[in-house]
Design a protein around this nucleic acid. Structure first.
Lengths: 174, 174
DNA sequence: CAAGATTGAGGACTCAATCTTT
DNA sequence: AAAGATTGAGTCCTCAATCTTG
């Protein structure tokens, strides 16, 4: 009784060009694809806002700090950070500008190769990333995992693995 | 034999702070969540690039055009476009600037209410959105659906529905 | 020349401020 | 005052150009 007004569900209008039979998905297909886009948007927005509010960090900022926290000597080359996070080197450089300005990392020129700059996590950085990650993990748990049962989580893990080249990206910390 | 070098899989390091048992996910959890982020990034980047290359349109641009194509009189108020796409009104206004400059839409002041501006799809806009949507649908089919079987698609549709407030957003066209 | 880092330009997005009309 | 649209400022991101070192 509720719907049918001027409100259409996602599936009902996940096509536009009915004229020829083409350009159309089944309802289930539409719900899966559009659901992916919507869920991603909502989840990341909420998580990002939470992190920003509580620690003044973006998701990417936390990811950089987290990778440093897990690295040998808490230090990594900027180009390695770029490869592993999947962000451009230029973005990494600017994220490091910000983290350095907040004294969460230091830039250390490599003694071995004068071209490379290494980012080193400071004590303050380690302290902050611990808190930020706790917030973030709790957020993902509550907003995402708590909505799913074990078999669904397994299907998602299985499905999404197909879109990641197995090696590429390597370690994801956040 | 292959791995174990300096390459860790996503699951192996989806945590950083081992010191206390907290802040940690199971491998499956990590694969599901990080997989969602990665898959989304890769899929949308590829799709966006394809659309840009073939039709000079962003995904949001296509979505706006597609909604207009499906609307009465091929016309909608800007604020309605914002609500339905989930974009800010300011973004919609600027997307319309661009679409109007390319003569894909026209801005028409509403006769009923002098505050509202309606976007009206032109003939050229309709022609273009048809082609763009065909490209996009084919892309999603090939890159996404073709990698999944029917039961998986059903699980995804079912799962993602939980993150969309049922009514909110209403109709998603792209 | 190639690799690593930085910088400039520009796209996509949001929020806050503004202006007009209701 | 509130709704609709626009504009300005600022974030996050990418690509292309540059500079330095190997």
């Amino acid at each position: 009784m509720a719907s049918k007004a001027n409100t259409k569900t996602a599936a009902e209008c996940a096509y536009v060009l009915g004229e020829d039979g083409l350009n159309r998905w089944s309802d289930t297909h539409a719900d899966a694809w559009i659901g992916l886009l919507e869920a991603h948007k909502r989840l990341t927005r909420a998580l990002e806002a939470e992190l920003e509010a509580e620690h003044g960090l973006s998701l990417s900022g936390v990811e950089v700090l987290a990778r440093l926290a897990g690295a040998d000597e808490r230090t990594m080359k900027l180009s390695a950070l770029a490869t592993e996070t999947g962000l451009s080197l230029s973005r990494i450089s600017r994220i490091c500008d910000m983290l350095q300005a907040r004294a969460l990392i230091e830039r250390v020129p490599s003694p071995d190769d004068a071209r490379v700059v290494e980012a080193h996590l400071t004590g303050a950085g380690l302290k902050l990333v611990r808190k930020a990650q706790a917030t973030h993990f709790a957020g993902v748990q509550e907003r995402f995992f708590d909505q799913l049962d074990a078999s669904e989580i397994r299907v998602l893990a299985d499905v999404f693995a197909r879109f990641v080249p197995a090696d590429a990206g390597a370690c994801k910390s956040v």
